[in-house]
Amino acid sequence: MTQKPRLATIWLGGCSGCHMSFLDLDERLIDLAARVEFCACPLTDYKDFPEVDITLVEGAVANEDHLEQIQRVRRQSRILVSLGDCALTGNVTALRNMFSVEDVLDRAYRQTAAVVTGIPSGNGAVPRLLDRVRPVHEVVQVEYFIPGCPPSADTIHEFLMALLDGRTPAQAGRFG
């Protein structure tokens, strides 16, 4: 028996809506679980990112952790898929590009802070923001793009089924 394809997902700078849309596959998740092995994803307890066949990437590259993560994920993934508008274009995550990082942090952590003021670092645990939020394909090579904010569960399902059946997935979906 051949091994099941290994599927992973990762969540960079975004709202998790694409992951929720993935969960909106509802009972189709049960059928999918029979066809793939779910590896690293925010819903599992993998701490290290293993070698996988397919990785769905939600979110834009917004901080130093994202940058390091996406480079490692790229090395470990045979097929990398940008899932949703933040991964594809930067979308809402990139709206802060109109301002400097200093101004954005100042507004949130000094001017409007109600209890504790000051930018948290957590002894280096809180990653530094990049000067500019970037879409995933500006940083690493991406094989497929699924637009949407979020892409609908049907769009995600059709894409995965095509990929698993060995068909060329249609670059379906729409922005927004």
């Binding site: 709202c15 998790s16 802060r96 301002f99």
Partner: peptide, 27 residues
């Protein structure tokens, strides 16, 4: 560890955009 700067990026935008924009705080 997640920070997107909504406190700043909303400034100057029309108030009727806010439900659609604020929604993206959390999916």
């Amino acid at each position: 560890t997640e920070f997107r700067g909504f406190e700043k990026l909303c400034e100057g935008r029309p108030f009727y955009e806010m439900p659609g924009l604020m929604s993206r705080v959390c999916g």
